[in-house]
Computed example of a mutant assay.
Amino acid sequence: MSALLSVRDLAVTFSTPRGPAHVVGGLDFDVEAGRTLAIVGESGSGKSVSSLALLGLLPDAVTRVSGSAVFDGAELIGRSEEQLRHVRGAGIGMVFQDPMTSLNPVLTVERQLAEALRAHGRVSAEAVRARSVELLDDVGIPDAAARLRAYPHQLSGGMRQRVMIAIALAGEPRVLIADEATTALDVTVQAQILELVARLQDERGTGVVWITHDLGVVAGIADHVVVMYAGRCVEEGPVDALYARPSHPYTRGLLESLPVLDDARPAREREALTTMPGLPPDPVDLPPGCAFRPRCAYRLDPRCATQVPPLEPVAGSVETHRAATFYRLPAAGDAQVRR
């Protein structure tokens, strides 16, 4: 199946008073119709910046973007603002991270939906209102006609997130990027949003990029996973293969930090959650060699200090499961991994 969006060697560098900050480097991924790609990692790993770079939403004065991002046969990197306006919304929709700051607090829901609907053509007021009600119905907002008159502060967190999704879907995009779309929501609302996106994806064949730090969410929604650290992909693969055999120390650390909700053992008998020491590196001053080396418990190979490990296939796994590490972790059956 050909990809709707194909990204190759994407790199993003910010100019700062302390020097260039290399926030994304050499990122590759594909987004296919009807399938979900999850991009995971800690805050500061480059997840959100990479998606903003694709749509030209980073400040030109301090940002240098290179590489390739082909959508619908056309290159996105280097295109003008006017050219990208035709892609945003109609081709690629985006649900931004915080609806309370992404929605305009002084405009009604109707005004903000109307802006999205009119961005790609002249539409009558009657058609805009009818389509706005339809979109709110689609995302599960009750009494949609009345909600159009509401301001963002009058809606719950879950409602605001649904409005954000409705705005992102207004242009009927072929690719939907959801940036931490459930981060601030309680688990019940989170489950509803995940179900909503999955339903819309099934109905429309939309390709979804789900950006998150929550590997627990990823297990239930993703087809393919890209794990990012310090702006680079350190492991990628089909979700089942990656969870069954996490092969980069960082991926394994993320998985082992998840609580086991169905552990029936008494609390005193349960294993303590794994934590990773240290912090992600400063993008202005990345360490030589493997960026994860200062925090890695497996930094035994001398190459770790001098060479950046390439993404290579994981032995004994599927061909599309790759990891960037000189150390080959034992299989999951040899070292317990929490799921």
Score class of each variant (00 low, 15 high):
1 M>Q: 09
1 M>L: 05
2 S>L: 10
5 L>G: 02
7 V>C: 09
7 V>Q: 04
8 R>A: 11
9 D>Q: 11
10 L>F: 10
11 A>P: 01
19 G>Q: 00
22 H>W: 10
25 G>D: 13
25 G>Q: 14
27 L>Y: 06
29 F>M: 11
32 E>K: 12
33 A>I: 07
40 V>T: 14
41 G>R: 10
41 G>M: 12
42 E>Y: 12
42 E>Q: 12
44 G>Q: 01
46 G>I: 06
54 L>K: 08
54 L>T: 06
57 L>H: 00
58 L>I: 00
64 R>V: 00
64 R>M: 01
65 V>A: 00
66 S>I: 00
68 S>R: 15
72 D>M: 02
75 E>L: 01
75 E>V: 02
78 G>N: 02
81 E>L: 02
83 Q>P: 01
88 R>N: 04
90 A>G: 03
92 I>D: 11
94 M>I: 15
97 Q>H: 11
98 D>K: 06
102 S>E: 12
105 P>Q: 07
108 T>Q: 14
109 V>P: 13
112 Q>N: 15
112 Q>I: 13
113 L>N: 08
113 L>W: 12
118 R>W: 03
119 A>I: 11
121 G>K: 09
123 V>T: 14
123 V>G: 08
123 V>F: 08
127 A>D: 15
128 V>F: 07
128 V>C: 10
129 R>V: 03
131 R>N: 10
132 S>Y: 04
133 V>S: 08
133 V>W: 09
134 E>Y: 07
135 L>F: 12
146 A>S: 11
151 Y>I: 05
151 Y>N: 00
153 H>M: 10
158 G>Y: 00
163 V>D: 13
165 I>F: 12
167 I>Q: 02
167 I>E: 02
167 I>L: 15
170 A>T: 07
172 E>Q: 15
175 V>D: 09
179 D>T: 09
183 T>Q: 10
189 V>P: 00
192 Q>A: 02
192 Q>C: 04
193 I>E: 10
194 L>C: 05
194 L>Y: 01
195 E>F: 06
198 A>V: 07
198 A>Q: 13
199 R>A: 09
208 V>Y: 01
210 W>C: 05
211 I>C: 03
212 T>K: 10
213 H>D: 10
214 D>Y: 04
222 A>M: 05
223 D>S: 03
224 H>D: 08
226 V>R: 13
227 V>R: 15
232 R>L: 09
233 C>V: 15
236 E>T: 00
236 E>D: 03
237 G>L: 02
241 A>F: 03
248 H>G: 03
252 R>P: 13
259 P>L: 08
262 D>P: 00
266 P>C: 05
266 P>Q: 03
266 P>R: 00
266 P>I: 08
270 R>G: 04
272 A>M: 05
273 L>V: 08
278 G>Q: 12
278 G>P: 11
281 P>C: 11
282 D>N: 15
283 P>A: 06
283 P>V: 12
285 D>L: 12
288 P>E: 13
288 P>W: 13
288 P>Y: 11
294 P>I: 07
297 A>E: 11
302 P>I: 09
307 Q>M: 15
310 P>A: 07
310 P>N: 05
317 S>E: 14
317 S>L: 00
319 E>W: 02
321 H>C: 05
322 R>E: 01
326 F>D: 08
327 Y>T: 13
333 G>W: 04
333 G>K: 07
335 A>E: 15
336 Q>E: 15
336 Q>F: 14
336 Q>T: 11
338 R>F: 09
